[in-house]
Design a protein around this nucleic acid. Structure first.
Lengths: 228, 228, 228, 228
DNA sequence: CATGAATGAGTCTTCATTCAT
DNA sequence: GATGAATGAAGACTCATTCAT
């Protein structure tokens, strides 16, 4: 699968740019495995435990020492950054494949929304939290790819006359993120069952014709990230 | 303003049951003022800062010493408990007055939803977080009152044929809570502008006739609190 | 005794300006005692153990909990800052009293040099280390006071014809600091005995007439702090 | 260049006596080159960065992997040990060649003092720090050679009537070390300019006739290493 | 032999909670 | 009753040292 993590910028750490992985420096196979495992574990742990999960706990779950996390990610912020990139990338794929594979545009949108939930989009608050460096080129690239994917989905659905016209990508993303956010502190696994109900309700609200007039105006992803 | 905090059970704090305030022991006027101020400050601070706000910060904002919080609430958990009660109470009032004052039942529901958002319902995840003692009689009472209020609202809206019939109080409450939850770490005050758009979309999804079939089944508030 | 710690600047911590102690906020007696004890303990501990001494060790020696240090000083850097101020202030007093009380100007200078050593001037590398915020007004004030005191001493000694004329305050301060610096890692208490020999030798080198031509040019304290 | 590192005793590293390199086991050429490079890099890095420099940083500067350091030196302590030996050896050479090449004995001493500073004698606190195993035969041998060299220098200078008679080798070594010690944490390269001023002043203090009476008594190098 | 990677122990710092005025 | 101060128990992060390629 295409990875959004190809463009790179060294974050010039004082000693070594741990997380910047320029093309010339291939990771050892086991290290790469660890790296991916840490990201995947962090994604799930964030969902189960909440955003304040200790890195030590992530390390424990991933079966590595705590310092191994720091070999791969300079600090908590950077780990979150990469988890965000990973999730955004996976979700972007979902958007793209939904559009490619579904003939009914609104069904494609619906499929995407539920798939994004399953991909733990809510684990991240990725577009809003201030714990991300929103200037980071990788994040911008991932955001743009995702925005493009969703835009295409929404555009097709709108073109088919099934999607109301007064909403933007940002509206969908924020609501989707919020509706699927994990509860803090406990593993509400069975909470998922609910989530899909609410997403479905929200999708019904997105259907054309619009049943009410919305306050404010449609939001792009850029809008979201700019609000402090 | 009716307070849900009159029936009491001491939760046997380590040394003294500070927070249990049996009716016989009227607080001094200034102490009561402090108590209310702490709760109100905590509510707002939770919204602005996020769930991990230090108690010292709440104390600072409330203009009291940190130990004063402990005079009123045995620990953080108990403070959150009371903030939750306060918010639930205020929201219940909103439900009740919306029903009483609006002639159009669906409009009443809509008014309630937006009012609940303004009351910071999302600051607390009041029904779900495991940082609450869900057995606590006060909480149960508050929940029941709130459930009754929303039930009445939804019943009326359903009766008027404007609300779809496959959703329960729990569905509304969870979605409402999630959609209005503050972002962690930063004061997204202007985020509010968005929230009402999403609530409106969700309300449109709630309208009859149902535009799709929902997975799962309608949830009550009891359901919610039993999970986990 | 006059304290250099009267002018203040809040270092605008995120939450509370712990270390800024504006005049309006008198410390409780016990807290002030702790504060002074921490500074004094840190001064001695720095001498005995070296600059890398853990704060926990300082806390232990001071008989307080580790967090108490942080109540008084936002971080390690700030503690060092205040220790530095304290030592500079004490040394400035030594300079002033030596000048005031000794009739022989060169003897006054000599007395000062040995007294500064006893005040642990070397514990700090106070003028040079980059672990200080050299822009800080308190530090500048302390430096200026100290420079003035030493300048007066040296000026008098020079005027009496006993001090060579090709050296500046900075020269004396640096050499004094270096010659009295504690060794890293071990408590060389009896090392002190040596130090005074070397200071004496250095003082002999400072005497007029100059016995050689020096490379470079006389240094002020400002010079020193600007390097690096 | 004569190396003091030929007589050896294995200091029984935990697993293998990595650093003991008995004569029979000639290092491969590249390994020897690495070893020397590590020592040289460590010497400079200690000067620029301070005593707390991480081994990883030394490895990075030396252009080797961190583990390579451990292949050559069992632990940090041992690396420091060898850097110390290296510096002492280089300084001893300076003493010997100064004596051999200068006709004026005091000039020879002066030349030596400045040369020792350029050899980074101060980087190591070589005679005093407790991070050395002062019992180690190599260190004793190096110390003895150095002491002999300086003794000869001082003896000649004393014989020429230019050096005061109340000071010992230890006095010179300690003062020299202290006056040239690098500041912690920052690369004060231009600090060197000062150092030679202070050394010159100190040398002037060493000149005969003595201008004052010194406290204590002359110190040998043995004295220094025995304290603590 | 050389190296990148992994790790546990240690340090700094924060915060809920308790203590003393 | 109220407060500032004190504290120990985490959590983030670093680094000497060990392991596996």
């Amino acid at each position: 699968m295409a990875s959004a993590a190809t463009s790179k910028t060294a974050t010039a750490g004082r000693r070594t740019a741990k997380s910047a992985r320029p093309g010339q420096h291939r990771l050892r196979a086991d290290a790469l495995r660890n790296r991916e495992r840490i990201i995947a574990t962090a994604r799930e742990a964030l969902v189960e435990y909440g955003a304040e999960i200790p890195l030590d706990e992530i390390a424990r779950r991933a079966g590595v020492g705590n310092a191994t996390i720091y070999r791969h990610f300079a600090n908590r912020r950077e780990l979150i950054h990469h988890v965000t990139l990973s999730v955004m990338s996976r979700i972007a794929e979902q958007a793209e494949s939904a559009l490619a594979e579904e003939s009914d545009a609104f069904l494609a949108l619906r499929r995407f929304v539920h798939a994004a939930a399953d991909e733990r989009i809510g684990a991240l608050c990725p577009l809003l939290s201030d714990s991300l460096d929103k200037e980071h080129p990788d994040l911008i690239a991932a955001r743009d790819r995702l925005a493009a994917g969703i835009d295409a989905l929404m555009g097709a659905a709108r073109a088919s006359g099934r999607l109301r016209t007064d909403i933007g990508v940002g509206d969908l993303m924020v609501a989707l993120t919020q509706l699927t956010r994990p509860l803090p502190g406990n593993g509400c696994v069975d909470f998922d069952i609910f989530v899909h109900r609410h997403l479905q309700l929200f999708l019904d609200g997105l259907s054309a014709p619009a049943r009410s007039e919305l306050p404010g105006s449609p939001a792009t992803l850029e809008d979201l990230q700019q609000r402090q």
